[in-house]
């Protein structure tokens, strides 16, 4: 007998292709942004989000009906989706934008995701709390606002009860953690402590190649991703001036006096 769909969980994980965190970033000569001709990979917070969805399935077994990943980005962002599929997601949606287009902003992304959620049946959105390229940290909150769903941000532990349609979330807050209980559908944003993603294994990487990847355009969802903010100038922080060594205390005191520091 088929279980009733009301008890099954459909998870959506939005992911972003970002400059890899191990890459040393450089401002481009035009000072309009950073040099993007470097190694990219999945935003680490999103990787945690995918891992959490996969681990939820390990814990809840068949109660998780689907894990769908979605990205908005240039053609190469498909690779990021393949990585997510190799980690254990079932299917992927790529909202493709031309290579030359500017990166969409949080509000545009949240709107596109809201439109997509109207189309798909989603009970739980798990997404990174921020992307390490623009560090905006807004999309999850905006999405919850647009959908009028509860939100549990900066999650460091997530327990879902599909029967009761609720989730218990431990949140990272100033000076400790906070436990909250939310009703589904729900938007959860992930913090670093939530889990430690596994390597993608070869059999899963091979399987990922055969998993469905649907391509959409912003027009298909009738959303406008044109940025509303204008970047005026991007500059590197001033270079740090190296320190010096002194041979003894007297020299140190002399240097301090020279620099105008005296005992009060």
């Amino acid at each position: 007998m088929r279980p009733t769909s009301a008890r099954l969980l459909n998870i959506l994980v939005p992911v972003k292709r970002a400059v890899d965190y191990a890459v040393k970033i450089r401002v481009n000569p035009q000072q309009t942004g950073v040099d993007l001709n470097v190694k990219h990979s999945m935003n680490p917070f999103d990787e945690i989000a995918v891992e959490e969805a996969v681990q939820l399935r390990k814990r809840l077994k068949d109660a998780v009906q689907s894990i769908k990943v979605v990205t908005i980005g240039p053609p190469k962002a498909s690779e990021t989706l393949r990585t997510a599929l190799a980690m254990g997601a079932d299917s992927a949606i790529h909202i493709e934008i031309p290579e030359a287009d500017p990166a969409p902003e949080p509000l545009g992304v949240a709107r596109a995701l809201a439109k997509l959620i109207e189309r798909e049946k989603v009970d739980l959105v798990i997404m990174g709390k921020q992307a390490i390229d623009d560090d905006a940290g807004q999309t999850g909150q905006m999405l919850a606002g647009l959908l009028d769903w509860p939100q549990a941000t900066f999650a460091s532990k997530l327990d879902v009860d599909p029967e009761a349609k609720s989730a218990t979330v431990l949140r990272e807050v100033d000076g400790g953690s906070e436990e909250i209980k939310c009703r589904l559908p729900l938007v959860v944003t992930t913090d670093l402590r939530l889990n430690e993603p596994h390597y993608a294994t070869l059999p899963n990487i091979m399987k990922a190649k055969k998993k469905p990847l649907e391509k959409l355009t912003p027009a298909d969802l009738s959303v406008d991703l044109t940025p509303r903010l204008e970047t005026i100038k991007v500059t590197e922080p001033p270079a740090r001036i190296g320190g010096g060594k002194v041979a003894n205390v007297d020299e140190l005191v002399a240097k301090l006096k020279e620099a105008g520091f005296t005992a009060a």
Binding site: D20, Y21, A22, V23, K39, S41, M42, T83, A86, Y199, A200, T201, L202, P203, I205
Partner: peptide
């Protein structure tokens, strides 16, 4: 081979 893992990003590569 039994199985294996393929690095997905520079951090995993290291």
């Amino acid at each position: 081979i039994n199985t294996g893992v393929l690095s997905q990003n520079p951090a995993q590569f290291s």
